[in-house]
Design a protein around this nucleic acid. Structure first.
Lengths: 338, 338
DNA sequence: ATAGGTTGTCGAAGCGCTTCGACAGCAATT
DNA sequence: AATTGCTGTCGAAGCGCTTCGACAACCTAT
């Protein structure tokens, strides 16, 4: 292991000079800088992370807490994680991967040990146990998701309320009067995950304003669950012509079932999905959808944290405005056999 | 920030004693141990990660390099990552998330800086640039995947050769004589990702042994690409009755297309998938499949590393034997209109 | 020519922990 | 009674880095 001292000796300067070349915190003459940089390259020097962290009280690591459950919106999670890791590297940070498993203890451990300089939390519940801890520390953090009380916190999320409203609007504008919402799995609502409830909120209030009937049904992913859910919906509201699907893993099953029942998309029924664009274009019908801007959220989270660590930046809640892309799964409502 | 020294003072012992209580590397009388532990709890002490790393040359961190591409087998990646993180925690390790983006430089950086004690690499290519670096360091590492030359390396992977053979066998046993293989995207083969080529190997050699005709076609995921690929296959080999699908994101499109063309699964054609069980049971037809044991691989990788870090364990290549689960997508070949 | 200000470099202290050798106290052996 | 061997604890050194104050050396302005 090459050390700073060895580089210093090799370059014929003191250790502190090398340190200043590395950090740029004091001016160094061009000639010495070049010489030092040369030595660093020749010796293949890499600063020791532990020593650096100890001396500077900065680990240059950002912790990312992902949910343990692999049952929901996996592609979104992965996309966020990758965006976080990539963005972090461009700012000189590495990413520590924590699972939700440890819960609040993980937050204590990380803040207490100086393992990371900042945290990003995903899968935030409305009244999350970890929030008091975040408020009680001076370590910056960003939530991806929105809890009930955001005071003293920084959050990014898609504006799911507006997303819900947008979906209803689109369908209503096309003349659909009976809309069914295929929601997330019941467990998601029981955990009071913010985004699910907020979407529902947006859907309902807009539906009311526009005089559209709305039926919401949670649904586990998969073909079988979707079959049961769809049957119930059509039983209760046979005139349903519009669907809003929030559960990614229910999208393809729904399309298959509709096809199987002879209901053509988009001639007979229209489907709007809330999912990453990639999922929307790869489906068996190119789906009209509101995109979940996973990359954007990940990038924003990191950039906000870096700003805060640099002494810039403040707490704030950023809701990303939803964008609905019209593809091939929505069209005018069929003429009604009144 | 509470320090070791403060705990020591609070408990009325020396710093080294506290350290030994924590590490258990020397015997400590029950009474002092209890007193120290009490103080630790009262003060809410967490050892400083940087200091610990510096003094012990151990970071207690395992680096995990995931591929940057989010276009292939995302669920598998995610499952592995989560299994790695969870398993690591049970052994007192944290996980650093690296993307493939940096390539070999990431390996240099991590080993050079002592950021992590060990690495796990995913998405290994047959002749991966990172391998020489791994061989040239004394830091333990595990590859998930199999390169061309494994000397001096530890690897885990599903035995994809056997997997290919198993798929052909199953279909052949059911009487299928014309089998089509829907492979990964062309880019995957161009990169010489080991698993894809090995699967193909297994498929081909078994097919030859059993006197079965095999047609292999790479395929991007998604509905449109699958449609094109399927049309070509049926054009070239109209008598095809068995399909082996390796590309997860081609599975559902294939099923939809077959249905659409009036080919019933499994009455007219049989489909075997190579994918995680979760994908297999959630598909619109419950798929006969060979499972990709993501969790098992992640867990194994960590446990092997921990063993090596503890001075136990050796280099070895572990190929997990494939298991084929028969579900509803395969059945006897239809009688042939010769 | 001298005071004052820059600029570039160095030495030393210290971050919080681990670990080695030392040693006091006590029990078991000669 | 003297020796040996434990066990449990302590002090001190040191891990590799950052950072502060000091200070030559030089360049301006008086």
């Amino acid at each position: 292991m090459v050390t700073l001292a060895e580089v210093a000796q090799h370059a014929g300067v003191s250790a502190s000079t090398v340190s200043y070349v590395l950090s740029g915190k004091r001016s160094i003459s061009a000639t010495t800088r070049l010489r030092v940089e040369q030595s660093i390259r020749e010796l293949g020097y890499h600063p020791n992370a532990g020593a650096r962290a100890l001396a500077s009280s900065r680990s240059n690591i950002i912790a990312l807490m992902v949910p343990l459950r692999t049952d929901m919106y996996v592609p979104v999670m992965m996309e966020i994680a990758i965006a976080v890791a990539t963005t972090a590297r461009t700012h000189g940070y590495d990413v520590l991967l924590l699972t939700g498993e440890e819960g609040p203890d993980a937050v204590r451990r990380v803040t207490g040990s100086g393992l990371a300089d900042a945290m990003i939390l995903m899968d935030v519940e409305l009244d999350d146990e970890r929030l008091p801890l975040l408020r009680g520390t001076d370590q910056p953090s960003v939530l991806i998701g929105l809890p009930a009380d955001t005071t003293g916190l920084t959050c990014v999320d898609l504006d799911f309320r507006a997303t819900g409203a947008l979906c209803v609007e689109h369908l209503a504008m096309l003349g659909h009067r009976d809309i069914a919402v295929i929601g997330e799995a019941p467990a998601v609502y029981e955990r009071h995950t913010g985004f699910a409830e907020r979407t529902l909120d947006g859907l309902r209030s807009r539906a009311q304003e526009l005089g559209v009937r709305l039926l919401h049904r949670p649904c586990e992913g998969g073909y079988d669950a979707m079959a049961v859910t769809l049957a119930r919906i059509l039983d209760e509201r046979p005139g349903t012509t519009g669907f809003v699907v929030q559960n990614e893993s229910a999208v393809e099953p729904l399309l298959a079932l509709l096809r199987q029942q002879g209901r053509a998309v988009p001639e007979d029924v229209s489907v709007v999905a809330i999912c990453p664009d990639q999922v929307a274009v790869q489906a068996s019908v190119r789906l009209t959808s509101v995109a979940i801007p996973a990359q954007e959220m990940g990038r924003y989270a990191v950039e906000h944290l870096v700003a805060k660590l640099d002494g810039r930046g403040t707490d704030e809640v950023v809701l990303i405005a939803p964008e609905l892309t019209v593809r091939a799964s929505t069209g005018p409502a069929p003429a009604r056999a009144s």
